[in-house]
Amino acid sequence: MKDTLTAGAPVIEAKGLNLTFQTGDGPVHALKDVNLTVNRGDFVSFIGPSGCGKTTFLRCVAALEHPTGGSLTVNGMSPDEARRKRAYGYVFQAAGLYPWRTIAGNIALPLEIMGFSKAEQAERIERVLDLVELKGFGKKFPWQLSGGMQQRASIARALAFDADILLMDEPFGALDEIVRDRLNEEVLKLWAATGKTIGFVTHSIPEAVYLSTKIVVMSPRPGRITDVIDSPLPKERPLDIRDSREFIEIAHRVREGLRAGHGDEV
């Protein structure tokens, strides 16, 4: 238990992971022979076209899907156990805030379920609202906030109960470029401030390169990993790092990986 708490220790370990869905058209190999180690404090992006299994892999880690083969551990436990121990917070593609609860009420939702006291709920809500720069918006209802603010509120909700893993499934996919840039910066700040391990699914190459310490390139039919890139970029990343030579080189390698995965289909 002790070594899982030190930086650099493996948090998520997948070995020969397989997941096959049985459908009317025969079996679909959503994940095939996936091997991956995510270390504590990593920011891992999963990138690839639709159907490459990037979301499915994240859902397996969250125990929302169950692999049909291979082994997967989260904090050294089975994903189900890890979930029971509140190992992760999950941010979905849509903010999915309850329209009948205020922003503070939405953040309180997991806290209520996990049995935090009223006082502690209030204290945590304040803290995470501050963290996602939504201070003073607690009493507002979701419809009073813009799409970007709603997604920040949903990140606050995932942070509220102090899980050390944050899983984000295309959280900014529905937002425009400008809002997205800002939120990317904020996520990096958040990551630096909290030291969490982050798993981040995305369609966007610049987003993946900008955010990650490790980029996992995946390809479809069957869903598999084609390349894992450890980013040489420094931890401090201003937005204009995207014009640097290293950045462009990594982006190029990601693009190559995506193209290779497509084979002769493109």
Partner: peptide, 27 residues
């Protein structure tokens, strides 16, 4: 499905899913 998945990630019980999600959503 997403809203139900969200509660699953909190390891919410069926009763909690009913009181906190299904019932208010049905109002």
């Amino acid at each position: 499905a997403m809203q139900l998945d969200l509660l699953k990630t909190y390891n919410a019980s069926e009763g909690e899913t009913f009181w906190k999600l299904r019932l208010p959503a049905s109002m």
